[in-house]
Design a protein around this nucleic acid. Structure first.
Lengths: 144, 144
DNA sequence: ACAGATTTGATACCGTGTCTCACTGAGACC
DNA sequence: GGTCTCAGTGAGACACGGTATCAAATCTGT
């Protein structure tokens, strides 16, 4: 089963129709390597309008086919995702994104719940660093 | 020493002038309880122009007098901060923000560095939940 | 075929933030 | 005092990401 088919099934399961526009957006997303902006898609999906791209993007985020990555400068980007809850390790050199399956904070959350009286329901964690390749290309400490 | 004076000193130490506009922006920020948007400040700082408010806000973020909070919906807000590195626990009920001094992920970062070959340089962590007061007012599971 | 619901795309709009540019005001120097 | 310089200012235009509106198109079930 292709990724496109799997996503289509998920959408249909939630009562959404599989239209040519949505198919085009999903195909464009799957064709992207790494993260992308909503505007990237708008440019590539000449067939679908801006609003439709954003709507589809939101739909896909809701069903978990796409997730959002917070870049170091505060900008939000999108990324194809097949996992449920996970975090990202973003390379500040080349922009590569590595998924992290193990949730690094689940233990800390329990402690915090007790200490603060909060019922912690969710969290957002992004990590930034330099991947092995970028470190080899430009050793740490050297600012280009 | 008042907060305003402390912040002024920090700015001067970096070679910035303490102008009436900046003083007004800082005063407006200090008068705010909890988080606020840049637009909040623009409205309250009738004396200072929009651009100046944003510029001052950026300055204060750089010197660490103000930090940004990522809300659950992806929106960014500002918050007075006297600490260095810390994280936030945001109440999804009343919007209260609790600072968390202990960095919950420093241990996990070491492990990740080894596992992935990344040199992890920074991270962003926000936690969301319901504070004790909100849990008492509307018990968990009840959606208003 | 028909009614009703969903989807679409053009466009206007909003929020957040930056850029531009002419102007100001304070300090340095003569 | 005059004037030079330069950080800072504010009005407004702009950029960007995303949402709201709304008429038209397209499905779906009967």
């Amino acid at each position: 089963m292709s990724d496109l088919e799997r996503i289509s099934l998920k959408l249909e399961a939630r009562g959404h129709r599989i239209t040519p526009s949505r198919r085009a957006v999903v195909a464009a997303i799957l064709a992207r390597k790494g993260h992308f902006t909503a505007d990237d898609l708008v440019v590539r999906c000449r067939g679908a309008g801006r609003a439709t791209v954003f709507r589809t993007l939101r739909l896909l985020t809701e069903i978990g086919a796409v997730c959002r990555v917070l870049m170091e400068d505060g900008a939000l980007r999108y990324l194809v995702s097949e996992r449920g809850h996970h975090h990202h390790l973003v390379c500040t050199g080349c922009g590569a994104v590595q998924d992290i399956d193990a949730c690094a904070v689940s233990g800390a959350i329990r402690d915090l719940s007790e200490a603060t009286g909060y019922d912690v329901e969710g969290h957002w964690l992004e990590l930034y660093g330099r991947c092995a390749a970028c470190r080899a290309a430009v050793p740490a400490g050297v600012t280009a």
